[in-house]
Nucleic acid binder design. Structure first.
Lengths: 349, 349
DNA sequence: TTGTAAGCGTTATCAA
DNA sequence: TTGATAACGCTTACAA
């Protein structure tokens, strides 16, 4: 059960290892006949080069790490392909790296980069609670993509980031609710001081209420259940049931993601509530599913194409020209659908 | 920008590289004081061992590959964590490897195994159209998990597999429809001769109709759109619209996955149809979402816990005792919900 | 066009 | 308890 190596192939072909290496790596300067012969032996023997050895030697792998924290959220999974296309356009490949729930994404990324000799990193989602400092120790360019537009301006220069304008987007959703007559608007969010997308979206909610002279009622700010996955419908469902049980005055519910909004809708309907007549509901992200749910969900669609493109552009700008850190914010698109507008809407695209 | 190596650490500590190596790998026989000193230098310098070099040397990595083809389907993503737990129980770790759309999962897996020195493979989902032969070239034990219970008995001995009984499960869903008065039942499926989960579920449909003396009408067997992701709601939506346009006699629609069923429901409702009064709809898999959709979707829940457990058990049986190939089939659980039963059902678990 | 040989950064063996 | 040193499988000068 011995592994077959490049030396075995060389011996079998009666050539030197470097010739075999040249064939494997598509180098020129190999006699076409020799190349054919070597290729066929490789084929027959089922030889596969050992990538660890290659990585060890190679100085540049022309690869970018994609660090993912939450693989469950469809919003993130749908961005993977977009990022990959952008990276490939530049002749690089994208190597995904999933970070487990308990792990620190930055520590994990550092090991991964070293192992694979990667030239850059895209962090997709994640929280970076305590690791903003650690990010600086990364020895390659990196971009935080869709991780929320972290608001503390002091740390702005420390990294590049591309996100939707979470605060503004959330504000637009709330304004839409206010414009359609709602004043008693609940919101499902994480911790208040959280520097995550959830925190930013909560800020947008608070600001917009204030701007419209609507007093903020703490009882309408619902904490998600920390023991259930954050972006899950289940969490939205359970949290909403608790809200409804409290029987506070409320005619609209904002969820901070579409997946959560689905759970909200279900909880409302199981309690006999009609959407949007009894409760208007909004989501966030604009995943495909939000359109196929019934009622279809009013949401803020993130411009994932733009975000993916800008993320990679920014990364390569830094990679190739050593450019400065920049923090980009894109506007989302407000999609008004059945969960706030009523009736069955048929979308054509 | 030079990378720091184990040699640098050794020099900085005034010890030999092997001592540093021992510390890194938690080997005994190191003077506690030396260990402390080395640890603190490693800490300060931000040294991270190069994994490629480690993999190159190490004979056993105590790791299992998890090969994923379709990361978008929530059914698969929810199985990842379960598999990981099982593998960790045995002191191994699970290394996920995503295979791109165009790539062959077996080729890709072979490279990956060699690179990482992995001891085994779990293939989650995927199709294995032409690669059953190639599977044999894999030099490590492997198990096909939830890839469909391939029915050609000749290839049964070639690999181990664990799946839900797709054919039977699909049959039970169809039988349930028949029992509730349906006879004109459409099905959304892939190619007929496809040896995939879709093909097996189609077989279950055909058999059950036959058993009940209901003639099979080709016009009710709908091909999914090959240009849209297979397990997507979008595909279900588009395919159903085409079905409805044909205005064939039909009172129930079977989708071969829950995600697809969601698209089916949406298409029906946009056309003004009521579920289940005008059309009963069934899914397959039993993902969380199927419960939160409205109407909640009648489906066959795959026993993912059992499948994950058996998958890993089978793999280690082969790994440790060189056991025989086995092909395990589990029964799913029929969940009758609103999409066939009507009204709002409140589930308690 | 081809082959030889020197590393890449680690771990493991062996002797000290 | 430690430290040289020989692999691991590959790429890449450099020499032929």
């Amino acid at each position: 059960m011995e592994e077959i190596t490049i030396r075995d192939i060389a011996r079998m072909c009666g050539v030197g290892v470097s010739t075999v290496s040249r064939v494997i790596n598509d180098h020129p300067d190999v006699n076409p006949q020799t190349r054919e012969r070597i290729l066929s032996v490789i084929q027959k023997s089922g030889y596969i080069p050992n990538n660890s050895a290659r990585n060890l030697k190679r100085t540049e792998a022309r690869s970018i790490a994609l660090v993912l924290k939450d693989i469950r959220n469809p919003f993130f999974t749908s961005m993977i392909d977009l990022l990959e296309v952008e990276v490939r356009k530049r002749g690089y490949s994208l190597v995904p790296h999933r970070v487990r729930a308990g792990e620190d994404e930055v520590d994990s990324a550092m090991e991964f980069i070293k192992e694979k000799r990667l030239q850059g990193v895209v962090f997709l989602g994640g929280y970076f609670r305590n690791s903003v400092e650690k990010l600086r120790m990364l020895r390659v360019p990196f971009v935080l993509s869709a991780t929320g537009s972290m608001p503390d301006s002091e740390s702005f220069a420390l990294y590049s980031s591309v996100s939707v304008d979470d605060k503004k987007g959330s504000g637009r959703l709330v304004q839409h609710l206010i414009d359609t007559g709602h004043r008693d608007i609940a919101i499902l969010a994480a911790e208040r001081d959280e520097k995550s997308v959830s925190g930013l979206r909560l800020e947008g909610y608070l600001d917009t209420l204030e701007k419209n002279g609507i007093p903020i009622r703490e009882e309408l700010i619902c904490r998600m259940d920390p023991d259930i996955a954050f972006f899950s419908s289940e969490n939205g469902y359970e949290t909403t049931k608790k809200l409804l049980d409290r029987k506070v005055r409320c005619t609209a519910i904002c969820a901070f993601s579409d997946m959560v909004a689905i759970g909200v809708c279900r909880a409302v309907m199981e309690r006999g509530g009609r959407i949007p007549q009894d409760y208007a509901v909004t989501g966030f992200d604009g995943i495909n599913l939000s359109r196929y749910y019934t009622p279809s969900i009013t949401t803020l669609r993130q411009p994932i194409e733009k975000i993916a493109e800008a993320t990679v552009a920014l990364l390569f700008e830094r990679l190739e020209n050593g450019g400065e850190n920049r923090n980009l914010l894109y506007e989302g698109e407000l999609l008004i659908r059945e969960s706030t507008a009523g009736g069955i809407l048929i979308e054509t695209d």
